[in-house]
Write a protein that binds this DNA or RNA. Structure first.
Lengths: 193, 193, 193, 193
DNA sequence: TATGAATGAGCGTTCATTCAT
DNA sequence: TATGAATGAACGCTCATTCAT
């Protein structure tokens, strides 16, 4: 029993290491990196990778799910703060920041649920709910225009993340972009065109 | 001489058809579509595809270049109009519209010059110049904040195009997004955060 | 009629140029050089090459036949001289010299008739007859051992040509090799092993 | 550990079988035989061939190296014998014999070092050293002319091997040819031309 | 007749996935 | 359970040859 538990711990550690290595490789070199390479760098055989992730698709999804989980966590942290308008800013900043350093993996894609596997969709829904919550709070506080919808925010996040991924924004550049965007979301007597 | 022209015309037509089919396939299903499939749908042999585009990379670049050219054309048309603030809006709208129906091909990528082949870079530079021109005009007219730089606009275009591609925006959705963004770019006594 | 003759002259010139270019290319880079390349360098279309040589094999054979013809010519010249032992030496030297600068084309192969096309076999037979003639004369003159057969000479030629091709012998090296060989062919009370 | 050894043994056996089949096929039909055919005849998938020989070039080199190794072995065996003049004869006979039944693969080429991969060059150097050793011994014993150099012997070997390959010599024919050549190498008051 | 565009079989190579050890 | 050898479908690309112009 102890032996079994040790084994499990080992297996779990293997899974984690594969995940980590794969994220790093896919992120730096694209998803065309062979599973064999992932195994090699991780220091295990291909069989082991396949034991944990029966399909390459499964591995990619696991990585995406993992990143989503980190996003949700960040979002939750922001929500915990009282000042809601800043909360929205922080959430967006956190998400876009995550995208900044991760390429090739469509972190941006993960925000929206389009034919995503169930596991990911659940987490994505969670994230959307959190954002929605913060958005409403911001609107109630009069900090964001009332006609802004959740989909507008998600869309904006997608665009910002894509740009951040593509250009490899640093913090300053990211803040500048989000701030500019926020000026468009902010409450006022706006847009008479 | 006429005979030669006829032959060339035929070849040119084939080239155009391959380009069209390839753009359509890559756009809908991603660039992993085999050249053989491109040939099959076009109704020619693989050899013909390779005669016109010696490498798959060449084919993709040709497609991107072609799309860029369309973008530049659209941009030029907009510039021709007197009302500069709308000119900027129109240019952005045109570019994003182009992205709306084309996926997987990073039309957005084409806007920025990152290790792009020379041929494409030339067209991209042209596009950037045009946008820059319109931007300055808009700022001079007081319609856009003075601290907005060309790179801000390009970045925004990238993000918008990416989102448009991803979500398959219709015209209304696209206009809404661009309008919102414009509110952030617009001249005023803005952002005290 | 004059026009036709002119045309023929042109065609003949084309044939000759193709032959020349092909020999040069195959000789320097091996027979894997595409017909298209041969056509390009010659300055004609592939169609023209195929008009004169319906098959790549035909082209190669034509080149080999051409070289054989040169060999026969050299051999004939040597035969014309009175001093037969030297005649054999000269013939061998001539053949090996030809091989010296021509690689990849198995000039050596051409000496022996093994499943060679008829056209080549006729010329090869001619060459063998000439050599045989000279060999007998040399033996009659007592300059070459009586137990040497034509096949020995052909074999030796093959080996020498192959080596000459492979090492790119200059004249000195070639003479040295042939002289040494001749010492083995020369009449005497030799080899008691 | 035993398990690992077993697996390795299996893999090694496969490698050996591929090598054997490939040598046979390349030898009989030339190196243009497709890898797929090699795999088919061996009874494995193409992937297996590529696992052991990442490139067709690698496969060919492995075959050549293997043949070289056999040559060196034969040469060593001959050297072990006391009678040096015969030792040279035996070495040459052994090398040419190897060439007799193997075509298309330029076993002869392997004797000389021309832009050969390092691995092969090492073995070739070994072979040359052995031959040189025997040659000097033969000259010291007065059995071979003093002005014969190693390069003469190598050249001769090349020529003989090429001829043996080409004509498919049997033992008698081979001995006859080598004997004749030896008459040219043998010590005496030689060649006054 | 000369041209060169088109064809398509064929080849070298890769890589996700399976399975014997 | 972990390993890595084996599999084979699939792909990018080449080139001898044909044929419309």
């Amino acid at each position: 029993m102890t032996a079994e538990r040790v084994l499990r711990a080992d297996a779990r550690r293997n899974r984690a290491r594969v995940l980590e290595v794969a994220e790093s490789l896919f992120t730096t070199q694209g998803i065309d990196v062979p599973i064999e390479e992932v195994a090699r760098v991780t220091g295990v055989g291909v069989g082991t990778v396949y034991r944990h992730f029966p399909t390459k698709k499964d591995l990619v999804e696991a990585i995406v799910a993992e990143r989503m989980r980190r996003l949700v966590e960040k979002a939750r942290t922001s929500v915990a703060q009282p000042d809601s308008p800043n909360a929205l800013f922080e959430i967006m900043d956190g998400i876009v920041a995550e995208a900044t350093v991760k390429k090739h993996l469509g972190i941006a894609d993960a925000v929206q649920a389009t034919e995503k596997p169930a596991a990911i969709e659940i987490i994505a829904a969670d994230l959307r709910a959190t954002i929605s919550h913060v958005l409403v709070a911001a609107q109630t506080a009069g900090a964001v225009r009332a006609d802004i919808e959740l989909s507008d925010v998600l869309t904006t996040l997608y665009g910002l993340s894509a740009a951040a991924e593509h250009y490899g924004w640093d913090e300053a550049r990211r803040h500048r972009a989000i701030t500019t965007i926020f000026d468009g979301l902010r409450s006022r007597e706006t847009s008479k065109d």
